[in-house]
Design a protein around this nucleic acid. Structure first.
Lengths: 338, 338
DNA sequence: CTGAAAGCGCTTACAG
DNA sequence: CTGAAAGCGCTTACAG
């Protein structure tokens, strides 16, 4: 039942042209007469011919494949607000440009050489980095070797210039904190992640910036570092509730931490937002449906995926003249914010 | 700064052997003297040589790439309990076997031909299907054309025999329902998805099976179909609370539906689990941390990913003698179950 | 607008 | 154990 695989030579013979002409038709080269083009196209359809990607890759020395690098970090959850829309944005845009995307999900710490070989062996044309930490050595290696990559989220401050797409983390944290300040809160805590993701640093900066605007000096007792998980949030909040003069408002770098923090708050018999108001970051599906509904800063992850894909395609063509992008975020008020 | 790309011919020359020998070394062909092997390997290392995947693919006519097909269905959320562990399981196992995985996330309804071409063009060696509905025509096309694929979750009942890895959905639903029955509940509702995923059908069967064991005939008023989302669960539960003699227990095909259902229950001034007990399916991260904590049936998604990857590698070698797998699930008691 | 031919970088019978 | 050579299926200057 298996049809013998037909190749460009067969098509050429059937259409009474040379393989060069068939190749031109396939590649939409304009130097083919309309008549010939039609004839060849007809034969191609009739025989259900698909050009071999391997052969094309070998000739063109590119593969039309990007690879998505997602380091798995213990104590970090790839939320449903992140991975699915990211994948959607990336694949949609790449697909429109006949690019495919490969998946490399690795547990930290990973061996960068292994992932470098994807490029060196000519399996992929370049990398899209997601969820990479500041101290991850991989981007620097790519940078050094002039290998095409785009980062989703800013990364190593050591790199002078590299293509990235990121949320406006500073603004998001700033807005959330400012909201509390305008409501009259003086003791505003920050739930920071222990991890060295750049977005943590930026959200911290946004928080500090807002405080500064109101002439408040950041109080180190109000800034707690914990893992970016539900449990981390729980532990952090427990600590905060034990200090003298505990916070009346909490801004968290992650919604998962907020969920843990909520439990800690309720456990102490306090009310949200009356005793402690709280705002998170990410906007999980469930945020609107928890009791109380959770305020958050929403990232446009799907758009980030799209922009990252565009940027990737761009740097393949021109590795010098590109522009990195910052995508706006949006503060979503809900009851937990008070 | 860019080193000229070195190829097998260069290595052969440098090592004073033929390209055939270098190729044998690369492919770990035993017919090479230890001495020669060492010499060649040394040169390879020294010059940081990587064989071209495209050239290898062309010669071997395979690509060492599988593609993961994830149809995006409106009204269905790819939860953080599903996609990340699935990807982890798949990539880990494939990686160990020097296989890579490509990503095709498409919005339903999609054009199957487009994804078929990934195989026909020789971009991938086969497909791993996730989240595919019963009436999706794609698997049948693969089946007809003898294209290698493995399905995560059972699919079309039209296919007589095909490789799949699935959770024991029937048992999971059965256990959850049985738990309620043993607690003395008589009016047990089922929150079904409207979508035609096979797992919905199976969870329904497990539910019915348990009822039957207790001599209870399924009451159609207690079985509500809605989208597998938070909102769907909310609407379904609202309906259930309006009927005469409303349920005292609810088993839901999805945890997201449970979250919506909880809101509906609380809105009516009822208590969980005192007035209405509830059990879901999937076990989201947040389940343990919601108030009340949510009982659920937990799937071993990472293991499913691993088994699917193994099965895929297996059918590539032998498309006839393989065994599909059913992975056990686990009922997780928490307060919401009563 | 079209074709003959070299080239992309491997693998793999075949012969020794 | 090793090598010469054909073959995998394309693309792309080059010549006309």
């Amino acid at each position: 039942m298996k049809k013998v695989k037909i190749n460009i030579k067969d098509i050429a013979k059937l259409a009474n042209v040379s393989v060069a002409t068939v190749s031109r038709v396939i590649n939409e080269n304009p130097n083919v007469s309309e008549k010939t083009r039609r004839r060849v196209l007809k034969i191609i359809q009739e025989y259900d011919y698909y050009p071999s990607a391997s052969a094309q890759n070998l000739s063109k020395s590119k593969t039309q494949i990007a690879t998505l690098i997602i380091p798995y970090e213990r104590g970090f959850i790839l939320s449903d607000a992140f991975l699915p829309p990211l994948i959607k944005g990336l694949t949609e845009t790449l697909d429109q440009n006949e690019y495919n995307i490969m998946l490399s999900a690795l547990e930290v710490p990973y061996i960068p050489e292994k992932y470098l070989s994807l490029y060196k062996r000519g399996i992929v044309d370049g990398y899209i980095l997601a969820n990479v930490k500041r101290d991850d050595p991989f981007p620097e290696m790519l940078y050094e070797e002039n290998i095409p990559f785009v980062s989703i989220g800013k990364i190593s401050p050591k790199l002078k210039r590299y293509p990235y797409v990121d949320s406006d983390n500073i603004k998001g944290a700033y807005d959330a904190t400012l909201y509390f300040l305008e409501k009259g809160h003086k003791r505003i805590a920050l739930l920071k992640g222990t991890q060295t993701y750049n977005f943590i640093q930026e959200r911290y900066e946004g928080y500090v910036l807002a405080l500064k605007k109101y002439g408040i000096k950041p109080d180190s007792k109000l800034i707690v570092e914990e893992t970016l998980t539900i449990d981390g949030g729980y532990r952090a909040m427990k600590k905060l509730l034990k200090i003298d003069n505990p916070p009346t408002a909490v801004f968290s770098c992650s919604d998962y931490m907020v969920i843990g923090a909520m439990n800690a708050i309720i456990e102490e018999g306090l009310d949200i937002p009356e005793d402690v108001a709280i705002i998170g970051f990410d906007d999980l599906y469930i945020n609107a449906r928890i009791d109380p509904p959770l305020a958050s800063v929403k990232q446009e992850i799907e758009e980030i995926g799209k922009e990252a894909a565009k940027l990737f395609l761009q740097i393949l063509k021109d590795p010098i003249n590109y522009e990195s992008k910052i995508i706006p975020v949006k503060f979503i008020w809900r009851k937990s914010a008070g």
